[in-house]
């Protein structure tokens, strides 16, 4: 049995929205019993991806979903924008590559922190990044 529930849909339009995404994701992580390290990884990845949505995607949305499979819980974050897209995804996922003058660890770092990572992008149409985080212990 798998159930998927969308808990939140947040807009990312300005810098303070990155903070809102972090706070919302933290609350969800706590509510499903993530350990402190799991919470911190999830919230940090959310912060990186929300910033990407704002700075590279010219704003967009963050969706927070809860997936329950047999005995396990996954928190999934889906970031969508209708920005310029990523012309070279392999390059964008390379450590240290930055098109915005950052450290170039946003996308590659979020991929490392997550248990599941999925990226869809179409030049001129936008980008969707999905990350899944599993709780270490099976939920009962």
């Amino acid at each position: 049995m798998t159930s998927v529930v969308t808990l939140h849909e947040l807009r990312i339009r300005e810098e303070i929205d990155i903070v809102h995404v972090r706070q919302t994701v933290r609350e969800v992580a706590v509510s499903v019993g993530f350990s402190l390290v799991e919470q911190t990884k999830l919230v940090t990845a959310a912060s990186e991806l929300a910033r990407n949505t704002l700075k590279h995607g010219r704003g967009g949305t963050a969706q927070v979903e809860l997936e329950k499979h047999d005995g396990s819980t996954v928190v999934r974050l889906v970031f969508r924008d209708e920005g310029p897209g990523i012309p070279d995804t392999e390059l964008a996922l390379t450590d240290g590559y930055s098109s915005a003058g950052g450290l170039g660890l946003g996308l590659s770092g979020a991929r490392r922190l997550a248990d599941e990572f999925d990226l869809h992008t179409t030049p001129g149409e936008g980008t969707t990044v999905s990350v899944g985080f599993r709780a270490g212990r099976a939920a009962t």
Partner: peptide, 10 residues
């Protein structure tokens, strides 16, 4: 937990 996450982030 912040230190662990930063290292994993690279």
């Amino acid at each position: 937990e912040v230190a662990i996450t930063l290292v994993e982030l690279g």
